[in-house]
Each structure stands twice: as structure tokens, then as C-alpha cells.
């Protein structure tokens, strides 16, 4: 959130961090789109595989940092 506030003030550092966020977001979006596609095709195996990938990504983005940094 502080990144967005910094963008509005045209802060250079938070612009760079926004770029980084976008870079990380693109594969996440790609995988979730694939998840939806396979789910619509009722392809169970590939839906599960896409879900595993997505869960791994979210694990890396949200869960593990909290676990590691608060140890």
C-alpha cells in the first residue's frame, strides 16, 4: 500500500518496486488464467497441477515470508 502512495508522489524507489510487483504478478496471472481454462475444459489432472503451481506461488508470496521473518 505504501508503494501506491509513493507512486502518487512520483517517488523513484516505489516506482521501481511497482515494476517489480508487476513483474511478479504477470506469471501469477498467467497460471491462474490457465487454471480457469483447464477447469472449464473439465480436465481434472491439469486443473490439479495448475492449482499446485498457484498454491506454491501464493505460498512464496504471502505465507513463507511471515513464517521466516517472525521466527
Amino acid at each position: 500500500m505504501s508503494v501506491v502512495a509513493g507512486d502518487l508522489k512520483l517517488d523513484g524507489l516505489s516506482m521501481m518496486l511497482t515494476g517489480l510487483l508487476v513483474l511478479i504478478a504477470i506469471p501469477v496471472i498467467m497460471v491462474s488464467l490457465n487454471l480457469v481454462r483447464f477447469a472449464m475444459e473439465r480436465d481434472v489432472l491439469y486443473t490439479v497441477l495448475a492449482a499446485v503451481t498457484l498454491i506454491n506461488l501464493f505460498l512464496a508470496i504471502f505465507v513463507l515470508p511471515l513464517m521466516v521473518l517472525h521466527k
Binding site: L23, I26, P27, M30, V31, T53, N56, L57, A60, P65
Partner: peptide, 10 residues
């Protein structure tokens, strides 16, 4: 891309 996004955030 996907692998680097995972380890990149970490």
C-alpha cells in the same frame, strides 16, 4: 518466469 517469480519474491 514462474520459477523466478516464486524465488524472486522470497
Amino acid at each position: 518466469g514462474v520459477t523466478a517469480a516464486t524465488s524472486g519474491t522470497l
